[in-house]
Simulated scan of single mutants.
Amino acid sequence: MRGRGATANPDGRFEAIRRESLDDGWPSDEPGPVRRTEVTLERARGIITRNTSPDIPFDRSINPYRGCEHGCVYCFARPNHAYTGLSPGLDFETKLFAKPDAARLLERELSAPGYEAQTIALGTATDPYQPIEREHRITRAVLEVLARLRHPVGIVTKSNLVTRDIDILAGMAERNLVKVAVSVTTLDPVLSRKMEPRAPHPRKRLEAIRALSQAGIPVMVIVAPIIPSLNDHEIEAILTEARACGAREANHVLLRLPHELKDLVADWFAEHYPGRQRHVFSLIAQARGGREYDATFGKRMTGEGAYADLIATRMRLAKTRLGYAKARITLDASAFAKPGEQFSLL
């Protein structure tokens, strides 16, 4: 389906009924269905999500949107759409939910007695700068609250739309309150269009890294996901380009295939790269203890075994050669002032 990443729309794992399309062999002249983006306004009761995962460097996050129009076929958040009674396939990228009250809810939660500031991760599941942000501007409203209250935030995106908010982010960066992680999956525009059809062109993401860096905003490049035999040969090239644009830190994530994502990715390979599917899944299994996915903390992001070790070694050597920082930047939470409190004049 033109402009969409998933090649199927399977029922979610919680549905009582499963439907399958069957090719009866008869040719059809009927055009395929058109999938337009639908946005539902969600009246959320809260906006900050907490986690206790020991292998990620934050314990709270905000996702202004459910679903993501970028349509990245590999997105580990796709299975979450099953909780809404929708498909992790095409529904995930066409039936979206926006949280218009996010900024108001955030200010209320930051005002709660006993709240202690720590870095909030913005966009951990779905991209806070996906195309519908241009209209809804929920992410910008959230940043305005965080900037006013001097609350640290880490942003994860693959969109150059983040540069729209440089006016806010630059001021936060001066106080060590923000850093941005930009995901660059590939430098090949043909491959990018196939697996992340509505995400910005790879060059646009590199330009975003440059613009953010020139504005004094620290940037991390995330080579993610690394897909065996598809984009793993690009690791050094991506790191080189991103470093030249000003990225200070770098990280990587090996392809994750939780729940329905395994079959969605398999269908995508069958459509676009049928000759590689078996080899790719074999390498993934080698890095996942013989399974398509291992959710064990400490292993789920990077895997283990010979292939995973090779990727980690290549990342380490390239980062050292290119002068990436060895330690992550730590943001400052000490300047946070709850709504209504007076800021110090010092």
Results as ranks from 00 to 15, higher is better:
Gly3Met: 07
Gly5Tyr: 03
Thr7Met: 10
Gly12Ser: 13
Ala16Trp: 09
Pro33Thr: 11
Pro33Val: 09
Thr40Glu: 13
Arg60Ile: 00
Ile62Gln: 06
Ile62Glu: 06
Cys68Glu: 00
Gly71Phe: 00
Val73His: 00
Cys75Thr: 02
Cys75Ser: 06
Phe76Met: 11
Pro79Ser: 02
Ser87Asp: 03
Leu90Met: 09
Thr94Ser: 11
Ala98Tyr: 08
Ala103Met: 09
Gly123Ile: 06
Thr126Trp: 10
Thr126Tyr: 10
Pro128His: 07
Thr139Ala: 04
Ala147Val: 08
Val153Met: 06
Thr157Arg: 09
Thr163Met: 00
Arg164Ile: 00
Asp167Arg: 02
Arg175Cys: 01
Thr185Glu: 08
Met195Ser: 00
Ala199Gln: 12
His201Thr: 01
Arg205Gln: 05
Ala208Arg: 02
Val219His: 11
Val221Thr: 12
Val221Pro: 02
Ile226Ser: 02
Ser229Gly: 09
Ala247Glu: 03
Arg248Ala: 12
Val253Gln: 14
Ala270Phe: 02
Val280Glu: 05
Gly289Arg: 04
Asp294Lys: 04
Thr296Asn: 07
Phe297Lys: 06
Gly298Tyr: 05
Thr302Ala: 10
Gly305Ser: 11
Ala306Tyr: 06
Leu310Ile: 05
Arg314Asp: 02
Ala318Gly: 10
Lys319Met: 15
Gly323Ser: 08
Ser344Thr: 03
Leu345Gln: 05
